[in-house]
Computed example of a mutant assay.
Amino acid sequence: MTPAARIQTAIELLDAIAAAARDQGPAADTILARGFASRRYAGSKDRRAIRELVYDAIRLCGERPESGRAAMLALAQVRPDLCNAFDGSSYGPATIDPAEPVASAGIAPDWLAAQLTASGIDAAEQAALLARAPLDVRANRLKARREALAARFPDAEPLAFAPDALRFPPDTRIEDTVEFQTGQIEVQDAGSQLVSEAAGVEPGATVIDLCAGAGGKTLALGAAMANNGLLLACDIDRARLSRLPARADRAGLSCASPMLLDPGREAEQLDAFVGRADVVVIDAPCSGTGTWRRNPEARWRLTPTRLERLAATQRHLLAVGARLVRPGGTLLYVVCSLLDAEGADQIDAFLREHGGWAAVDPALPVGEARGQGVRLTPGAHSTDGFFVAKMQAP
Results as ranks from 00 to 15, higher is better:
D271F: 10
R240E: 00
T218I: 04
S287V: 11
E266L: 12
D262L: 14
V281Q: 08
A251F: 03
A246P: 04
T291D: 07
A277D: 02
L261E: 00
P245Q: 07
D278E: 14
P285F: 02
A220L: 14
L261M: 12
N228F: 04
L231W: 00
P258N: 04
A267S: 15
A220C: 06
R238T: 05
L270N: 10
A220Q: 12
F273C: 15
A233T: 08
A277S: 03
L221T: 01
L219Q: 04
R276E: 10
L241K: 05
A277M: 06
G222C: 07
S254E: 02
A233I: 08
L219M: 09
D262H: 11
N228H: 13
D249E: 15
C255P: 01
D271R: 15
V274E: 05
G288L: 02
P258T: 13
I282C: 04
R243A: 14
L219H: 01
A272L: 13
D271A: 15
S287A: 14
T218F: 00
D278R: 12
L219I: 13
T291K: 04
A267W: 07
Q269R: 08
M225V: 10
E268S: 10
D249H: 11
V279K: 02
T289C: 11
R276C: 08
A233C: 09
F273Y: 15
A251D: 05
R276N: 01
A277Y: 00
C234L: 04
G222L: 08
S287M: 10
A284L: 06
R265Q: 14
R250L: 07
A220N: 07
V274W: 00
G264R: 09
R265E: 14
L231C: 10
G229H: 02
V281I: 15
S254V: 11
C234R: 03
T291P: 09
F273V: 13
G215K: 10
P245D: 03
G215D: 06
M259C: 12
G290I: 14
G288C: 00
R243D: 08
L231K: 03
A267E: 14
L231T: 06
A272V: 14
A226L: 13
I282K: 07
A224Q: 12
R247S: 07
M225I: 11
E268N: 07
I236T: 15
G288M: 03
T218V: 14
A251T: 05
T291V: 15
L221Y: 01
G222V: 05
L230F: 00
R276M: 12
V279D: 01
G216F: 10
N228C: 13
G222F: 04
R247W: 02
S287P: 13
R250E: 02
L261F: 00
C255L: 09
A233E: 00
R276I: 09
G229F: 00
A277G: 04
K217Q: 04
L231F: 01
M225D: 00
F273T: 12
V280D: 02
T218C: 06
S287K: 09
V280A: 07
I282N: 06
L232H: 00
L260F: 05
G229W: 03
